[in-house]
């Protein structure tokens, strides 16, 4: 959608207006309205609205409504799950600090040793082992965060662009040709944004590591029937047939410094969103990872 310059976006509920100078195709107001119907068993509905105006007047109103359907009675189970998640997250933070100081002291020690000193080699091994522990801890934190089931309306193409931004330098360094293909920009999902972001980070990271210098990575976003499909396609070395049935298994990795948790976490997140993740790979030619989410009434 494009409505020329000086678009005004108005919040349907508060009538506040937002002028956006950058003139994006679609504007989504962050956050959601919560409407509590007290006489109906305290059901909560999250409502998102966007009113798009241009100089000639209102061009359209988009209202997204999602009923959580949670009554007070079944809150207990999900609350205790989120307590476990929070506890795990705090534990992970506590582990990070000592690892950080160990690594730092090892680096200081490393700088004092000469190249011919055998101890320098030991120190380097210790640093790389600490790095491995740090990656594990980071992935465990992500795993703990998958307990969080708060959702919002996520604009898929925008999210992909945000993640790609993180990889811009790495792509340039490796001279990788990156393309985002989205026939329909207005693909939205009712999802946990941080978790979805993590899935794209994991897939892009794998693609980046798989391709040779000068290779290509494509992200294809499409809407088909009642599904939203996001594909990450790389021109890398492909996945060898003997490991194909193991790649979603926790702690399985073919990388030197991998934790073997990236794809396991991604699968868990996708399945928590009632989606599917699968891949096809051609050794020596490349791999396509596909993530598929069912579209709800509110996403269409």
């Amino acid at each position: 959608m494009s409505f020329g310059d000086s678009n005004v976006y108005e919040d349907f509920f508060t009538s506040r207006s937002y002028k956006v100078s950058e003139d994006p195709d679609v504007f989504v107001k962050e956050g959601a309205h919560t409407v509590v119907l007290e006489n109906k068993g305290c059901h909560t509905f999250n409502v998102n609205t966007i009113v798009v105006k241009n100089k000639k007047g209102v061009s359209g109103v988009i209202v997204y409504c999602e009923g959580e359907g949670k009554s007070e009675d079944n809150k207990g189970a999900s609350e205790s799950l989120s307590v476990i998640g929070e506890l795990a997250a705090s534990a992970v933070h506590e582990i990070k600090n000592p690892l950080f100081s160990i690594r730092g002291f090892l680096q200081i020690l490393n700088n004092t040793l000469s190249e011919s000193d055998k101890r320098k080699e030991y120190v380097k091994i210790m640093i790389s082992e600490v790095d491995r522990l740090e990656s594990l801890v980071k992935d465990f934190l992500m795993l703990a965060k998958t307990q969080n089931d708060s959702k919002e309306l996520v604009w898929v193409c925008e999210l992909v662009r945000e993640v790609v931004e993180l990889y811009k330098n790495s792509f340039e360094k490796k001279k990788i040709q990156f393309r985002l293909q989205a026939k329909d920009e207005s693909v939205f999902l009712w999802a946990n944004k941080d978790q979805l972001e993590q899935v794209f980070i994991n897939l892009l990271q794998n693609a980046l590591e798989a391709v040779e210098e000068g290779g290509s990575i494509d992200v294809i976003v499409s809407k088909k029937e009642e599904k939203v499909m996001i594909q990450v396609k790389d021109s890398g070395r492909g996945i060898s047939p003997e490991v194909r049935d193991k790649i979603f298994t926790p702690f399985f990795t073919t990388k030197k410094n991998g934790t073997g948790l990236g794809l396991f976490i991604s699968k868990r997140i996708v399945e928590n969103h009632e989606g599917k993740i699968y891949f096809s790979s051609d050794e020596g030619k490349g791999t396509i990872f596909s993530v598929e989410f069912p579209m709800r009434e509110t996403d269409r």
Binding site: N97, P98, F100, S101, G104, F105, Q107, I108, N111
Partner: peptide
């Protein structure tokens, strides 16, 4: 507030 993180950073910067 983490004593060894603080000490480590101090040492590294003093060097």
């Amino acid at each position: 507030d983490q004593i060894w993180v603080r000490r480590m950073l101090q040492e590294a910067l003093q060097v």
